[in-house]
Amino acid sequence: MSPLTTTHHATATGPVLRVGGDLDYEHAPALREHVERVVLTPGQCLTVDLSDLQFCDSSGITALLAARRHTQAAGAALVLAHVPANTLRILAIVGLDQVFTIHPGSGTV
């Protein structure tokens, strides 16, 4: 297992949160806490860049859903970018590919 890494920087459309490592039961709460601290204004877009994500289980899905609630509460949007194929498959299984806005692999962030 690899530890979770989260870094974030601001862009013109809103903050970008880059998540790497394992998003599992042990590490998902760290992402939830990080997302809670991101300040959003209405109309902004929070981009969660998953290009370095190694693993994502149901706890990771929960953390992403929490991020979605957080952005909705702030009147902002959430975009998942560079979602690894494996995680995309899981999102499809649980039907969340219809719920999240997902930017395909190599979009600009």
Binding site: G95, L96, V99
Partner: peptide, 12 residues
């Protein structure tokens, strides 16, 4: 097909 996680949206 079409099944969503149970409990996250009011109308799934």
């Amino acid at each position: 097909p079409g099944g969503l996680l149970v409990g996250i949206l009011p109308d799934a």
